[in-house]
């Protein structure tokens, strides 16, 4: 029947050789993040020199340029930092909890769940403001993630390939329902299509403020389970033998993933692949130790998201390409490569 080759799909075993000193990696990562922040503040439909950006940030600048920086670009960058960091950590925890290199918010169906919930809410309840979308996005994302995890669960272990497949199946169904609703009502299409593309531009900071507690809770949980995830990587039985309460760690880690992923979808709309890519970029440099991996993914996720956003602004100047579309174009090849490697 289905030949789900169940071999080396687990998270890569402990690092074979750690060539790069962690401090250097941290410095480079922090530097990259700072550069991306600066670019995100300075570039766009209207390029603003860095000196103006700095004077605007310090509150001494005046004029339209300074207003653009403080009114539009600072909120945008803050949203990008939060969403990117949350997605990166969510990916790392999801991969650790499921012991599966393909797990990520996208492949777990979180985005599709949030998308369907929001579109259904617009269709039925005539919502119009992103602030109102938020709760539906949270609920839909959480429900989809739980469903996919439940479907992939076998006694003992969640099978990696099945997890990806269940996510795909659920995504296909939810996407077709989403499309059906948007086709049935022009109003829903108008309201939803920009939200569904996933972008950090033009989002409401009020949503970020509401969601922030969820994201922070998710981050705290993620850091709390990090040491246990290392034991979990050895297998359920080994982890149990080491005194790790496996079911409880799974539960807490899963809760962390749902909080982080659902929170970021609620703010920015579905942005694929950040959660998948960040851990895979970090692991070759820092190894598979979750105590390092998770903070590094926080930085990497934020950097990736801001970089994608800046790229989207530059490609289609003076208009812009939605962040979610940029990450999808960049991330699809990555998923293909990973799938190739993991389903050997």
């Amino acid at each position: 029947m289905v030949t789900t080759d169940r071999a080396a799909t687990a998270v890569p075993a402990p690092p074979a050789a750690r060539r790069v000193p962690p401090l250097l990696v941290a410095a480079v990562g922090g530097g990259a993040l700072l550069i991306c922040c600066a670019l995100s503040l300075a570039l766009g439909a209207r390029s603003i020199p860095l000196s103006t950006v700095i004077s605007a940030l310090s509150g001494s600048g005046r004029g339209p340029d300074a207003d653009v920086v403080t009114g539009l670009r600072v909120p945008r960058t803050l949203i990008g930092l939060t969403v990117g960091g949350a997605l990166g950590v969510a990916g790392a925890v999801a991969q650790g909890v499921t012991r599966n290199a393909l797990a990520s918010p996208t492949t777990l169906g979180v985005n599709a769940g949030a998308g369907f919930a929001v579109v259904a809410a617009i269709f039925v309840l005539h919502l119009a403001r992103p602030l109102e979308f938020m709760w539906f996005a949270l609920a839909g994302a959480a429900a989809a993630a739980l469903l996919v995890y439940g479907l992939a669960q076998r006694p003992g272990d969640a099978d990696p390939v099945r997890l990806a497949l269940s996510g795909t199946v659920l995504t296909a169904v939810l996407a077709s329902w989403t499309t059906a609703l948007m086709l049935a009502s022009q109003r829903t299409l108008d309201e939803a299509r920009f939200w569904l593309a996933g972008s950090i531009g033009g989002r409401d900071v009020a949503v970020l403020e509401r969601v922030l507690p969820f994201v922070v809770a998710g981050l705290v949980l993620a850091f709390a389970v990090a040491p246990s995830l290392n034991a979990l990587a050895l297998g359920d039985e080994a982890a149990h033998a080491l005194g790790v309460p496996v079911p409880r760690i799974r539960l807490l880690g899963g809760a962390s993933v749902v909080l982080l992923a659902a929170g970021s979808v609620a703010v920015a709309g579905p942005i694929p692949f950040i959660g998948l890519a960040a851990p895979h970029l970090v692991r070759p440099l820092l190894g598979a130790d979750h105590r390092r991996l998770i903070p590094a993914c926080l930085v990497t996720g934020a950097t990736l998201l801001l970089a994608a956003d800046v790229l989207g602004r530059l490609i289609a100047r003076p208009s812009e390409l939605e962040t979610g579309i940029v990450t999808a174009f960049l991330g699809a090849p990555l998923l293909a490569v990973l799938a190739r490697r993991s389903a050997r």
Partner: peptide, 8 residues
């Protein structure tokens, strides 16, 4: 799985 990636 590669098909899934392509579909994305």
């Amino acid at each position: 799985l590669v098909g899934v990636a392509l579909q994305q």
